[in-house]
Every structure is written in structure tokens, then in C-alpha cells.
Design a binder for these strands. Sequence first.
DNA 1: CATATCCCCTGCGGGC
DNA 2: TGCCCGCAGGGGATAT
Length: 324
Amino acid sequence: MPELPEVETVRAGLVRHVLHRPLAAADVLHPRAVRHQAGGASELHADLQGRAFRAAVRRGKFLWLELEEADRDAPVSPDHALLVHLGMSGQLLIQPPASPGTPHASTALPAAEQLARPVTSTTAHVRVRLRFVDGGQLWFVDQRTFGYVRSVPLVATDDHAPGGQGSELPLVPLPAAHIARDLLDPAIDVPAVIQSLRARRTEIKRAILDQALVSGIGNIYADEALWRAELHGTERTDLVPAGQLAALLEHARAVMSEALAAGGTSFDAMYVDVDGAGGYFERSLDAYGRAGQPCRRCGTAIRREQFMNRGSFSCPACQPPPHC
DNA sequence: CATATCCCCTGCGGGC
DNA sequence: TGCCCGCAGGGGATAT
């Protein structure tokens, strides 16, 4: 999936394009996209119709668009948002008002790419179409349908910054209330994360992929952080010294920050921002996807192992597995 | 409770 | 050419 840097790239694009524009309709083109919405497509439409977004917010890989109040004079009601999870293959694509947004005329892509692109790839997988009153659209596109959109109430979380100064509790979507802060969140309490990591009795890669412990890290950046920290993913969390855990988290933060600056990691047209453009971080990866290629630190061939039913890439020399 | 496994999907590339 | 297999950036829902 888009991991934290890719989702943040999408969020920044939403801020530039979709705030304060009233919605005319939400069209659900594939039922799986709204499978977590109790009332289904009709409820999503009813919750969005006539409303506008006031902010685009992200925590880890969870993204949501806060809704402006429908009626300023209405009695106080809980804040609501449109929650979006991109899953493995989700995209949000802007369709400017100038274009009718028909499936055959995507202006989200550069002209040259439009001509080269088969009709099938992106446009065939539009799952939800948000139509703005001004004629523009926001498409939720998702080939593998692991992603979803859903209107949700926002709730105040009880976690807060260390020191807790000026601390209003942040609003998060109710279904994502269990998601921990991520490493690019200025209010994250890193020492507390290290403590909960050490309290775990599991392998280190499992732990840093657990979104309830620290969010935003996925398979790519987990492997990159482990490579930089010279740790093997099957190392037990409770046996890794706290200093090494701190270094690992700092590497994860740094690699995601660098990837964000490069526009994210795009292996293909699946991982793109709201304008359809991909990022350039793939060329900077040191471990992920580099099986058989020389480690950039010591020259040993990077190995690929099966772990948690997916690939894990590491250097056999720099990251020896713990002996049991 | 914490932790581990299993699935949900579609499409693509490689081997036969 | 075509079929079958493995593989893909995630996490929710169940098992233990």
C-alpha cells in the first residue's frame, strides 16, 4: 500500500484541491468500497450531500476529510469526517471542473500519459465518485478493493503529547481510535513507544508493523529501517537494547521523511498523488525489492525471506538473524 | 488480554 | 499462445 509518505503526499494534494467546495453527490460504483459503512451507499451520500470539507488530516496510513458543519445554527453535534483507507492499491484522483470527468477523458494525467494509457488500468477501477457542486470530482480508485471510504464520527483521543502543554485532545475517526501516532507526528511520545516495544513478546518487524504501537510503517519502510539499523526482523523485541530500538525508530522516521521529500515510492502507476504523478524514492531504497543485488554497505547480496506471508529483504552480513 | 493466522481482491510476470 | 503459480505497498476478523 501507500505507506505513510505516500498517504501524506495524497493528503497534501487534497488540501490544495478539495477544501471548502460543497458536494453535490457521492456515487458508489463498487459496493466493497463502502463495506464498512453500516448504511451503505445511500448513507454515505446522505452524510456528504450539501456538505464541504474543512480539513484533510492523516494519522499513519489513515486519512480523513473533516466535514464543515451543515448548519451553523444547528444544535451542537459531534464532528464527522470522511475516512479513507487506501488499502493496497487505493488512489484519490482530482478531476478538475473544466472536464466532465467521463471515464474516457481523465485530465488527472499528463496529456502524453493519457494517450498511452489503456482504458482499463486506472479509470476502470473508479469505486466512488464524489461530485462537487462546481462540477469537479474526486475519484476513489482502487484496483484490489482492500481500501474503503466511510463517513464517521470524530472522537477525542486520550493520548496527548509528552508534557501535555496547550493540549487539546486530537479528534480522530472512531473506527481508527486504536491507531497510534506516527513518527512524523510532532506530538509522538517516542520513549513511550520504546517502552511498549520492549514490553512486547514478539519479533521486531511484527512490532513496528503493528499500527496500534506506532503507525505509518509498512513493509517497505520496515525493511529500510531495519537495514539502516542493522537489525534482522526476527529479533525479539524484549531482547533488543532500548538504545537500538531508539535508533531503529529514528531510522524509520528519517527514511519516511526522505521518501516524503521525494514524493513517495512508486513502483508503478498505482502509487500516485491526487494529480496522478508518482514519486521518486524507489531509486533510494537500500533493501526492499533488491534481492540478489549488492548491499550498499558491504557488497553482500541482499536476500529475500518469507515473513508474515510477505517478502522481507535484508543483508545477510549486516543483519544476521538471531540464533535460537 | 496479547499474539498469530487467515483472508479479503485483481492483475501481472515468469515458468512450463 | 495460454495456463497456472506466486506475488504485490494492508488490516480486519477470527483463532489460539
